[in-house]
Simulated assay, not measured.
Amino acid sequence: MQKATFLLPIVLVAALAAGCGGGGSASVDKQDVAVVGKVHVNKAEYNTLIDQAKRSYKLQGRPFPKQGTTDYESVKGNAVTLLVQQAEREAQAESMGIKISDADIQKRLDQIIKQYFQGKHAKYEAQLKKQHLTDAQVRKDIRSQLISEAVFNKVTKDVKVSADEVHQYYLTHSQLYSQPQSRDVRYILVKSKAIATSIYSQVKAGNDQTWCRLAKKYAKDASGQNCGKATFTKGQTVPVFDKVAFSQPTKKVHAPFYDPVQYKSWFVVEPLSPVKPRQSTPEKQVASSIKQQLLQQKKNVEMTAWVSKTNKDFCSGSKIKYAAGYTPSQDPCAATTTNATTTG
């Protein structure tokens, strides 16, 4: 059974680096770790993330970094940055006309409870207790996720993929939609040339039962369990075997040959079927999946461009303030400002 995990995935944060700042400027209060425009990011939210990080480390059997260490500052900075990004995204969503209602949150929560807890609230509440979370915290995380999804959908709503783009992708990636030549063979792999020669003499004069008996007795690989029978595609195995398997006449046993590259052993091989030709999947059968793949790629590009622009817009001026001791060691706004100065 799948396990429900909180915090719930945050689309923009997971996929992209969101920008900094947003809206006017407010003063940092005692209970804040940061202020984003007029949005206060409080220490309770920060402590929740740190507690979750500690539990994650414990589950992995790793000691949580000690305060004052570089690793601790990295975890701390990531927590603060995540909360700041959430506040920024909410501010952007508001300016885009995106609103998430309590009903929207309840609907998603109901889906989670149905999927992960068989629709039983008692099991959901037990999981909350186990993870030291509250229903309010989960609802806040759901709200953040819904905002992320709505922003992504709105930014990428006009992205399209044409039939020509699908066709060009199919042509330039034809190897993904084709299967090489294949052939059914039976073979016996042995270390000794003398044994290979003896097997060759017996199977030439024998029948299916002869092959099966000798394969089970002598084969040095798993093929013996199937009387030596197997299907190979062109180029699948070592060159010397590949050459014989795809050139030897059907139902004619090839004289023993040695592989000096990988197996360093002797083979006795008999093709059982004609060579099956290379097969390609028609474009119309894969067009839909190609279109979805290209669409997602183009949406990600569009989203990346939007985030880049947002970085420049929000990281100007003093639109974000950190409480003393909470400035991330790698401040995204500092990096954006540096890049703007360098490239401007």
Results as ranks from 00 to 15, higher is better:
6 F>V: 08
289 S>W: 00
13 V>Q: 14
229 K>D: 03
5 T>G: 09
88 E>W: 12
337 T>D: 11
265 S>F: 04
342 T>Q: 12
35 V>G: 09
246 F>V: 09
197 T>V: 12
254 H>T: 06
246 F>C: 11
288 S>Q: 11
48 T>L: 13
254 H>A: 15
262 Q>T: 04
25 S>A: 12
88 E>R: 13
23 G>A: 15
265 S>M: 11
328 P>F: 13
7 L>F: 14
109 L>Q: 13
236 Q>L: 08
266 W>E: 02
49 L>W: 07
131 Q>F: 04
311 N>W: 12
27 S>M: 15
227 C>G: 05
294 L>R: 03
84 V>Y: 01
271 P>N: 03
62 R>P: 01
159 V>G: 07
221 D>I: 10
242 D>E: 10
9 P>K: 10
303 M>Y: 04
155 V>N: 07
39 V>I: 12
253 V>K: 02
289 S>G: 00
248 Q>Y: 04
294 L>C: 08
154 K>D: 04
33 V>K: 05
253 V>Q: 02
149 E>T: 11
272 L>W: 01
221 D>F: 11
159 V>C: 05
317 G>E: 06
251 K>R: 11
27 S>W: 09
312 K>T: 13
55 R>A: 14
105 I>Y: 10
201 S>R: 14
162 S>W: 02
198 S>T: 14
340 A>Q: 13
253 V>R: 00
108 R>K: 15
261 V>G: 00
40 H>S: 15
125 E>P: 00
302 E>T: 15
7 L>H: 10
